[in-house]
Simulated assay, not measured.
Amino acid sequence: MIEIGVAAGLALYCIYAFYRCSFRVEEGHLAVLVAFGKAATHDGQRRLKTYGPGIHWKKPWERAVIVSMKEQTLDLNREEGGGSAMADDGTILRLDSFVRYVPVQSELYEFMFGLERPLDHITGLFTCLLRNEIANFRGSEPEVAGAKAASLATRFDFASQAGSYALIRQQRRLLNERIESFCRLKIDDRYGVRFNAVDLADILPPDELADALNAVIQARSEADALLHRAEAECQQRIVAAERGVSVATARAQAIETEIRALCAFLDDLDEKAVLEAYVARRRAEVTSESRTLFVKEPATNGKRVESGA
Rank of each mutant, 00 (worst) to 15 (best):
R94S: 08
S106P: 00
G163I: 12
R131A: 00
S22Q: 10
V104G: 00
G114Y: 07
L12H: 01
E297I: 03
I92A: 04
A8L: 15
S140A: 10
L129V: 12
Q161W: 04
G82R: 00
Y101H: 05
G244W: 09
E276M: 05
R190K: 12
F156H: 04
R117S: 11
D75A: 05
D268W: 04
Y101M: 10
Q253L: 11
F156A: 03
L95S: 00
G81R: 08
A232H: 14
E27V: 07
A248F: 06
S221Y: 06
D157L: 09
K303F: 14
K49W: 02
L209R: 08
A149N: 01
G44E: 05
I134W: 06
I66W: 03
I55W: 15
I134T: 02
E143A: 07
A254F: 05
L33N: 08
Q171V: 02
V245C: 10
A162E: 14
R243H: 13
L167Q: 10
H42W: 15
M112E: 01
F182H: 13
R78C: 06
P298Y: 05
D157T: 06
A64I: 08
P118M: 01
I217V: 13
G124I: 00
A31F: 04
A150E: 13
E143M: 04
G124S: 13
R190D: 11
A254D: 13
G308F: 08
E79Q: 07
R117Y: 13
E110K: 09
G83E: 15
Q161F: 15
S151F: 09
R169G: 09
I2L: 15
E110S: 11
A250F: 06
V193G: 02
I92T: 10
Y101Q: 03
K186Q: 10
I2K: 08
V6C: 05
A35S: 14
K49R: 15
N132A: 09
S151D: 13
F265C: 02
P206V: 05
G90R: 01
A248H: 11
R178A: 07
R291S: 04
M1D: 09
V198L: 15
R169H: 07
H228Q: 15
S288V: 01
Q105V: 07
H228Y: 05
Q236T: 06
E116D: 12
A225V: 03
C183M: 10
W61I: 06
Y19L: 12
V193H: 02
I134R: 08
D75S: 13
Y51A: 04
T41R: 07
E62S: 15
E256N: 08
L175H: 12
R291V: 02
N176D: 05
S151G: 05
G139S: 06
E27D: 12
A264W: 01
F265G: 02
L152H: 01
E256M: 02
L209S: 07
N301T: 04
V274S: 08
L10F: 14
G302I: 02
N196D: 12
T91Q: 14
P205L: 10
F156M: 11
V305E: 02
L262Q: 08
I179F: 11
